[in-house]
Computed example of a mutant assay.
Amino acid sequence: MCGRKMRVTYGKKSITVTCPGCAVGSLDLTPTAFQQFAALGVGVGRLHGIKWTLL
């Protein structure tokens, strides 16, 4: 899926991103995209319960 556009949803917030790379069962986001979901900032490390759909 790397390099593909996808809609990522966490809670009630959704963003459209281009996947920079990922391992099976996980999704890597850029720091900018991650900060849109993590109120505590990138120091949180991981978010659980994210959903994504390829566009």
Rank of each mutant, 00 (worst) to 15 (best):
M1E: 04
C2M: 10
G3R: 05
G3C: 06
G3M: 09
R4K: 15
R4V: 13
R4I: 13
K5C: 05
K5L: 13
K5V: 09
K5A: 13
M6I: 10
M6F: 05
M6Y: 04
R7D: 07
V8Q: 00
V8Y: 01
V8C: 03
V8R: 00
T9V: 12
Y10M: 03
G11S: 11
K12P: 01
K13G: 06
K13R: 15
I15K: 05
I15V: 15
V17I: 15
V17C: 04
V17T: 02
V17L: 04
T18S: 13
T18M: 06
T18K: 13
C19E: 07
P20H: 09
G21N: 08
G21C: 07
G21M: 10
G21D: 10
A23R: 06
A23H: 10
V24D: 12
V24A: 14
V24S: 12
G25R: 02
G25H: 06
G25T: 07
S26N: 08
L27R: 04
L27P: 01
L27Q: 01
D28F: 14
D28Q: 09
D28M: 14
D28Y: 08
L29N: 01
T30P: 02
T30G: 06
T30L: 11
P31N: 10
F34R: 01
F34T: 01
Q35N: 15
Q35A: 15
Q35Y: 06
Q36C: 10
A38G: 09
A38R: 02
A38W: 09
A38Y: 04
A38T: 03
A39M: 14
A39V: 15
A39L: 14
L40R: 12
L40H: 08
L40P: 01
G41L: 07
G41R: 03
V42R: 10
G43A: 11
G43N: 10
G43F: 05
R46C: 13
R46W: 09
R46H: 12
R46F: 13
L47A: 07
L47Y: 05
L47V: 07
L47W: 06
L47M: 14
H48W: 07
H48K: 08
H48T: 07
H48V: 10
G49L: 05
I50Q: 01
K51S: 12
W52G: 00
W52R: 00
W52F: 15
W52I: 08
T53A: 10
T53L: 08
T53G: 01
L54P: 00
L54I: 14
L55M: 13
L55D: 03
L55R: 06
